[in-house]
Design a protein around this nucleic acid. Sequence first.
DNA 1: GTCTATAAGAAGATAGAC
DNA 2: GTCTATCTTCTTATAGAC
Lengths: 205, 205
Amino acid sequence: MDTKQRILDEALTLFSEKGYANVFVGDIAERVGIKAPSLYKHYKSKKAIFDAIIDKMNESFAEQAKAMQINGSDAVADAEIYKGLPEEQLLKLGRQFFLYFLHDDYNQKFRKMLTLEQFHDEDLAKIYSRIYVDDPLSYQGMLFGFMVTSGILKTDNVQIMTLHFYAPIYYLLTICDREPDREPEALKLLDDHIKQFDRIYGREN
Amino acid sequence: MDTKQRILDEALTLFSEKGYANVFVGDIAERVGIKAPSLYKHYKSKKAIFDAIIDKMNESFAEQAKAMQINGSDAVADAEIYKGLPEEQLLKLGRQFFLYFLHDDYNQKFRKMLTLEQFHDEDLAKIYSRIYVDDPLSYQGMLFGFMVTSGILKTDNVQIMTLHFYAPIYYLLTICDREPDREPEALKLLDDHIKQFDRIYGREN
DNA sequence: GTCTATAAGAAGATAGAC
DNA sequence: GTCTATCTTCTTATAGAC
């Protein structure tokens, strides 16, 4: 029963649904099962709760990014995995990846919260871009770089190939965040996208 | 000096920067050069201002969409234009298109406002998806369909080809909305994207 | 249509008992 | 650490003079 942590969890849920300004300290407290004033024994202000969420997110994403770079081996290993992959398995992997980021609580809520707050200060803008632009393009780019070297993929511009893979996936994710009912449609497009990508950049081209 | 219109303009500017909840009626009034209570002679509530903005936007976008469908000729004509286009000119057109949507006041502010409000109710979510998903994919798809028929482009899945063209452009647009400083980087990627797209789906493939 | 004055209520935060 | 009571400030909105 770590109240301090529960406050963060409930606050994140509310922030991701309504945005910071539309969530009241009382709402958070109510979900935690305490009264608003009690909450101030754990955090000194509403803003402090928000900042704590951002700090935690930064920590966990930095950890993840670091692990991926230190084990540059990760990308090498991943590239190896894709090497012999028949299209069907590639589709399955892509779909798993997509569904994980779409439905994983932590990921979805952070993403939606950042979407709603991204214009409110420069730091948040930078964090958004790091998590949803720079880091994925950098990791995917590394992975695809290995795959090009291995002859699994073919291109003379890895960066754009990576953009061509990632941008449609990101786009479909934002559709589902906004209208969860469109998930089946998005999954169909995801499948077709990966198939087409494989045909364009894949071995048999 | 149409005060009623000026209220909408200033409100849109503020909503697009801070989000609805962070804008106060007094802020809007101040920008218009009147006091808050005077504003209530023009609109009966803050929400009514927001709704009026949405209504106007719906109107103007519907007009635009209708004009494009009635003149399905538009897409045919557009397709004709692209027919003889050397790559350099195609790039120029793509860049112009991108910069228009990025910098045009009306477009940028609506886009940012909707981004911030998209999760707050289902209607707004649908409007966002219509404007930034369904309409552009539908129009571009029609255009590309003609271009495939004319032999300008080659694919067996026009829908995915359209996604491959549009998603990266949308993605780069969101980056610039969030971090305007990254515009040069985005423009470089836009160029490379269009070049690569042309190589993948274009005549010489 | 614009103003000043003000009502009415919401929301963040503190005091102090338990 | 949680509560009730309360303070303070902010915000929407109305009343009524000009």
